[in-house]
Design a protein around this nucleic acid. Sequence first.
DNA 1: TATTGTTATACTCTATAACTATA
DNA 2: TATAGTTATAGAGTATAACAATA
Lengths: 184, 184
Amino acid sequence: MAVTRNTSKARKTREPLAPDPALGEGGDGGGHFNPHLPDVDYGVLDTLTGYAIRRAQIRIYEDFVRSLAAWQITPPRFSALQIIARNPGVRLTDLARILGIARSGAVMLFDALEAMQLVAREPSPTDRRAYALALTATGRQTLAAVTEAVCDHDARIGAQLSEAERQTLLRLLDKLAPGEPWQS
Amino acid sequence: MAVTRNTSKARKTREPLAPDPALGEGGDGGGHFNPHLPDVDYGVLDTLTGYAIRRAQIRIYEDFVRSLAAWQITPPRFSALQIIARNPGVRLTDLARILGIARSGAVMLFDALEAMQLVAREPSPTDRRAYALALTATGRQTLAAVTEAVCDHDARIGAQLSEAERQTLLRLLDKLAPGEPWQS
DNA sequence: TATTGTTATACTCTATAACTATA
DNA sequence: TATAGTTATAGAGTATAACAATA
């Protein structure tokens, strides 16, 4: 089937997905990731830029999901909400490209947010194939609160750094990930 | 079933998994992730430490997998090989804790490396329940070549940075991800 | 009773490919 | 012919829970 906007058939909404079972406190991998256990020789891993970033990313992801659990908001969902809020009328294809995921993934991500009443598909004024993605009123209110929680989380993870250090970190990370791929 | 080490029944070896279909050049998400498209308003995302790290991590992961495709080595596989090489006799439970994954995941990861003839289970001298994990002769040779390729990759992604900047980056990332979780 | 390795199962995420409607 | 959105399917990766052997 294709775009069912103008038919009476209700769209199949997807259930809001669980935030991330990887972080359940229950049993096995339940604890917190410790990036540097004592009595362990990490070898070359300790000298690699890539591993240092991976370590940080795991910890940040954990804290993000914990901090936003009450809203069922994960990092990709927050990114999508921000992009939609700041770029009104983006299409699903745009969203996919911006987030670096496949179009089908963008549809699933958006469907989850739609089931949470945070976003809606509006008709594109220029292309009858496409939708203009938008936040609902609820979505705008929720995003305001969520953004505050995300900024709190981000401040918490950066608390060990001075503001000057944090700016330096952002600048160096930006240089690390330029627009064009690195030369092979 | 439990530990079948001393029986004649052959263990079920797992096929080496494909490196990561997410990076296929074929169709949809096939291109390279561009962390900062023009004409897109990223809003608060541009100010978040967490998003900057996520951007960098995606790009680094892509380049890692591309660089190591010939060996079928992914970041988790490389980490596991390094840990086993530098900490002879670690058990599967140790490996899981070090890498921050569940024990069942460590088994699957190790099984994949075993199917590639890079590692082997040796009897633990002190605990008949456990194995002492070790590299095979092939594993040691392969790891030497793979480590060189990984270091080349890491140098490439850090090429935009001076060595002083790279050291600063590592130091700041280390401060960001300390041993203990951040205070809620 | 607790721990080690193992297996079964489930779920998330992501991709590829085919399809409909429209450009 | 190409593009937008959708769906189906498949795969990797991770988790939880139960189990046998051993501590």
